[in-house]
């Protein structure tokens, strides 16, 4: 990665907030990372492609939502703590305000048979969306025994038997990380060249 080619003039905190709020209000249907990349890299040139991918890598590895994590990293890079706050709040607030309205409507009308019927359709569709995203991100991991060794136990423990998430993570993550531990290249382990998961 090159030196950070900081834009001649970093944006003001207000401008950061507005830019992220515009993403937050227009990004229907998920895929926020693509919207973020569009604005941050292509339109505003606040980060170059490499820097954005670097931010995404951190955002994916750490807990929390990938999109809001990336917002914090981009905001911090451009304007420090106020920038991080402005970017993440900008991303979250518009949806949060819309969801207050949806939530109040739902709380008021969820007994109504019309609403119940429509929401049954919406919920069934949301499951499809979630499954598609899982299959897409999982991709070839579903065909690799080494990965299935963790996909299946995680699913059974958390999904079916309700083992607590903390316990599951502490049991499985160390083994999984150990199995992928750095090895001298003489090993010739081809799985080490496997592609990283997509956002």
């Amino acid at each position: 990665m090159n030196n950070p080619p900081n834009p001649a003039q970093p944006p003001s905190v207000a401008r950061l907030f507005i830019a992220f709020a515009l993403i937050g209000v227009s990004s229907f249907g998920g895929g926020l990372i693509a919207y973020l990349r569009d604005v941050v890299v292509d339109r505003e040139h606040w980060l170059d492609e490499d820097e954005f991918l670097g931010a995404l890598e951190i955002g994916q590895t750490l807990p929390g939502l990938n999109s809001t994590n990336v917002a914090v990293i981009v905001g911090r890079k451009l304007k420090g703590a106020p920038g991080a706050a402005a970017a993440s709040l900008g991303l979250i607030l518009p949806g949060a305000l819309i969801l207050i309205v949806l939530g109040l409507l739902y709380a008021r009308f969820h007994g109504n048979p019309d609403v119940t019927a429509a929401l049954a359709g919406v919920a069934a569709a949301a499951v499809g969306l979630l499954l598609q995203v899982t299959l897409k991100i999982g991709g070839r991991q579903f065909l690799r025994p080494k990965d299935l060794l963790f996909i299946i136990p995680t699913f059974l423990m958390v999904g079916v038997f309700h083992v607590s998430l903390v316990a599951t993570l502490f049991l499985l993550a160390p083994i999984a990380i150990w199995m992928n531990r750095p090895r001298p290249s003489k090993d010739g382990d081809t799985s080490q060249t496997a592609p990283k998961s997509a956002p």
Binding site: L130, T134, L148, I177, N180, P182, K196
Partner: peptide
């Protein structure tokens, strides 16, 4: 790299559990 590669299949297992958690009702 080990951290990322190791956590990736666990994330997928958790997402599948999410599909199951919502799907068993919806």
């Amino acid at each position: 790299d080990a951290l990322q590669r190791g956590l990736a299949p666990i994330t997928i297992g958790l997402m599948l559990s999410g599909v199951y958690a919502v799907g068993k009702t919806a």
